[in-house]
Amino acid sequence: MAAADKAVLEIRDLHAYYGESHILHGVNLTVREGEVVTLLGRNGAGRTTTLKSILGLVGERRGSIRIHGTEVLGMATHKVAHLGLGYCPEERGIFSSLTAEENLLMPPPVGKAGAGMSVDEIYAMFPNLKERRNSQGTRLSGGEQQMLAMARILRTGANILLLDEITEGLAPVIVQTLGRVIGQLKERGYTIVLVEQNFRFAAPLADRHYVMEHGRIAETFAASELEAKMDMLHEYLGV
């Protein structure tokens, strides 16, 4: 099918800087429609910076980032988001001056009209959030906050999800729930970039894996090659 080969996110020779520090040194990465792709690597390898670069949340950038063929370098952050991006930051970014429900409803629609999940669908997926909808956002437990951070980008109709370390520091049962959610999203045709430390979580979900080191892509391989690549991965990830 032609649609399945279409690149929705294409990063070419991307360099990114925070002030004086040069973080990314020529990243190349392609994500096709409906793919789930992971960015693996140690802390400081440049995975979070790669996600942030897509949205223009770093300092200077050079190279090329195309979303559905549109060059986004030099585009204002909020306009990039309207190309259908949903971003879940590593620190979750739940707003403490908003209730859980206000947090959920805050991000404006960025996709086609009616493309996002309804609030009812979201509450069916994350029943805890419905119970706690009137609580202050940051009073939720870590797991609930993570679900909220995921849930609020599903409402917007975004179909490219950039998820940064969504399992970090969460109880196994919550990690399982998130795994199920990602699985459901994949079935619905979302394109997902997962930055992950938790390889066990990411491995069964992903179509392809990118391994980053020192601000570059060190390795790329398909899920089917995983067995053969395990030794190499252990070396890169130090697990």
Binding site: L57, A76, H78, H82, P89, S97, E102, M106, P107, I153
Partner: peptide, 25 residues
């Protein structure tokens, strides 16, 4: 109101609010 929610969220973390597609400038 919703407008106020943007403002409160923007006061906390303007970059993230902009990353959600709000014209923060």
């Amino acid at each position: 109101t919703k407008l106020g929610a943007y403002l409160r969220a923007g006061t906390e973390n303007p970059k993230l609010v902009q990353a959600f597609g709000v014209n923060v400038p």
